[in-house]
Simulated scan of single mutants.
Amino acid sequence: MNYLFPLSLLITIITGIATVTINQTTGVYDSSHDSIALPIIAFLLIFSALTTTYLAQLFFQRKTLKSRIGKRVLLGISGLSAALSLLTLIANAIYWWLPNHTIISLLFCITTAVFIYNQISLYRKA
């Protein structure tokens, strides 16, 4: 089940990029607005950051299961990683709750739910 969160995040990011691109080409945004490159770069950075913290969290969880030395430190680092990721997901769900972007927000909400489910299953193993 470790693949659900990265897959959900990837679907959300691809849909977000597609939505912003479609909105630009169909004239939803005024021509006076800046380029859509900033949201696309932001989506890619969010994907990179959350995927990196998720993989680091998996690494720390596996280290904790194999070695009981420093368990509290490793669980603390893992918990901090989870908290930052959760805040990022919630912030994006709120930010994209605008007309013409609602699908992005809903997908971030679904990704947040998948993330929480994944965290519960990870911490049950620890």
Rank of each mutant, 00 (worst) to 15 (best):
I77W: 15
G27I: 06
F60N: 01
A91D: 08
F108N: 01
L107V: 01
A18H: 10
G27C: 13
T88V: 11
K63V: 07
L89I: 02
I36Q: 09
I46L: 12
R72M: 06
N92L: 07
L106Y: 11
I40S: 07
S105N: 08
R68Q: 11
F59C: 05
S78E: 02
I36S: 06
F47D: 04
H101M: 14
S48H: 11
A56Y: 14
S32K: 08
S85P: 03
L38R: 08
L44D: 08
S78M: 13
D34T: 13
N23S: 09
L80N: 15
T26M: 09
A18N: 11
L38E: 12
L86H: 03
D34R: 07
D34W: 07
G27W: 12
S32T: 11
H101I: 00
S67M: 15
Y95G: 00
F47H: 05
W96E: 05
W96M: 06
I90E: 08
S78L: 08
S78T: 03
T21C: 04
I14W: 13
V28M: 04
A82C: 10
N92T: 04
S81I: 03
A93K: 02
A18K: 05
N23I: 01
L106C: 09
P39G: 00
T53W: 07
K63A: 13
A83R: 07
S31H: 14
P39R: 00
T19V: 05
L80P: 01
L80W: 14
Y54S: 03
